[in-house]
Nucleic acid binder design. Structure first.
Length: 451
RNA sequence: GUGGUUGUAGCUCAGUUGGUUAGAGCACCAGAUUGUGGAUCUGGGGGUCGUGGGUUCAAGUCCCAUCAGCCACCCCA
């Protein structure tokens, strides 16, 4: 091919390649999420990336409709790429709930697409790790959702994080009481900016977009100013929603969740009632969650969710309440990268076998097989190059142990085990079936893993 | 989608009011060291100056457009 015809290799805006050094921690995160979800009995499902357009439109908000990747397929059907995993779940549940039965607990780890503007931690293609419980209104499901989020971040190695929890009905109950019930979406949207733009601007926006009066706006702000410990917040909320059945129910549900999560042994500061948490997709109707990293609040919520009591109502007459949350894998990775929490390793194999003596490949393959049988990841170098170059290769990739066998060692029935971290070597007899070598390597890796 | 900002080697960047063959550090490759990596020294490869147009005798440098990154709005994972 001539040079001038060559196509420039490039990726689309908001889409990225994942080289090994970023894919390894990515997979580790997905495995952790999978493990935690499964530990609560959530089962895996998958659904198509493409759905009929009508399935996806009008389910999130006007904004998500605008962000939808949509086009006609070869059969001239209007289709779209899913923008989250919850709407496909609703369709899936409406279609299959008869066979699945309720309550139905599933997790779903898969990419979603949104055609919005990019920013740090915001991409057009990103992976979400969702878990949801369908078919029950029980408070236990709300409580379990909070516990799963907590366990998840704990398992990922975070210590400084906070799950903020609120209840849509608490806010709506108040709005109902003061006559703003019809305008809840606009009011909540304005209220959500409280931390960023301050109470005065929020009041202005509520007056402008929701048609609120000045006294109404003041009341909403007074409500949002409630603060303190969880017990203090709940105590203040009670009188504010008194008289609104929905509001009272919401506060009671929040109190129940807080008490149960506390009772399950979760530290108080990990779960905080926060009435200013108003965001989330429009389909949430009950409790809502957002999770922030203490060291990096600016990147936004890394795990959000909530209760939706009528998600599948657009597809079926069967009532399917549900609750769940979504871990934003790529946003979380961007945060961890910034915090320096990602291990810089470019290989999944800690054990390296240089191809030393040109005519002894089979000996190296047999040793590698023995180590793999013992559960270790082992790489054998493919070319009989200079030993120094091979060790350099292993070092660069982050291998931890090299097993050096030249003519001398092979003749003596020995293997040199080189610790690439310390540089020290020891000689071990190959023996029958490499048992001694396997044990020695295993010991080295275990010690290394503890530091 | 709107506004702002940036774009020179794989990476981080320098490049003087426009002026000849565009530089450095790191990384990479080779050698010093025919069986031992991370250090040092020497040498080497690698650049359509994001892309396309325009102004000019002359553009990495000025203008316009476009693409991409970042930031804010919006929204959200």
């Amino acid at each position: 091919m001539s040079t001038d015809k060559r196509i420039e290799p490039r990726t689309l805006k908001g889409f990225r390649d994942y080289p090994p050094a970023t894919m390894l921690p990515r997979e580790r995160l997905m495995e952790t999420a999978r493990r935690v979800y499964r530990s609560y009995g959530f089962s895996p499902i998958d659904t198509p990336a493409l759905e009929y357009l009508e399935i996806l439109t009008g389910k999130g908000s006007d904004e998500t409709d605008r962000q939808l990747y949509r086009f006609q397929d070869h059969g001239e059907r209007w289709v779209a790429l899913r923008f989250d995993l919850t709407v496909p779940l609703a369709r899936f549940a409406a279609q299959h709930i008869a066979e699945l039965g309720t309550p139905f607990k599933r997790y779903h780890i898969a990419p979603v697409w949104r055609g919005e503007n990019t920013q740090r931690g915001r991409y057009r293609e990103f992976v979400q790790c969702d878990f949801d419980t369908i078919g029950t209104r029980a408070a236990a499901a709300d409580i379990e959702t909070a516990l799963v989020i907590h366990d998840l971040f704990q398992a990922l190695g975070f210590r400084d994080f906070a799950i903020r929890v609120n209840h849509r009905q608490v806010l709506n109950g108040l709005l109902e009481r003061i006559g703003l019930g019809e305008q809840s979406t606009n009011v909540l949207r304005a209220l959500d900016k409280l931390r960023k733009i301050g109470p005065e601007k929020v009041a202005e926006e509520m007056i402008a977009t929701a048609g609120a009066t000045r006294p109404q706006a003041e009341q909403v702000l007074k409500f949002a100013a409630v603060s303190g410990t969880n017990d203090e917040v709940l105590a203040q909320l009670g009188p504010l929603v008194a008289g609104s059945q929905r509001g009272e129910e919401g506060v009671a549900r929040l109190a129940e969740i807080i008490a149960a999560v506390r009772g399950a042994g979760v530290a108080e500061e990990r779960l905080a009632v926060d009435v200013s948490i108003a965001r989330g997709l429009d389909y949430y109707t009950g409790v809502v969650f957002e999770t922030f990293l203490g060291q990096l609040p600016g990147i936004g919520s890394v795990c959000s969710g909530g209760r939706y009591d009528n998600l599948a109502g657009l597809y079926t007459s069967q009532e399917l309440p549900g609750i769940g949350a979504s871990l934003g894998l790529d946003r979380l990775l961007a945060a961890m990268e910034e915090l320096g929490l990602l291990e810089k390793v470019a290989t999944p194999a800690p054990v390296f076998i240089p191809y030393f003596a040109a005519d002894r490949l089979v000996d190296y393959l047999r040793l590698a097989a023995a180590l793999r049988a013992a559960g270790m990841n082992v790489e054998v170098y493919p070319e009989a190059r200079k030993l120094g170059q091979q060790l350099k290769y292993a070092d660069k990739r982050g291998c931890r142990v090299a097993l050096v066998q030249g003519e001398d060692e092979l003749a003596a029935g020995q293997c040199q085990i080189k610790d690439l971290t310390s540089g020290q070597s020891q000689s071990v007899s190959l023996g029958d079936g490499f048992a001694e070598v396997v044990a020695a390597v295993q010991r080295l890796l275990t010690i290394g893993a503890q530091t």
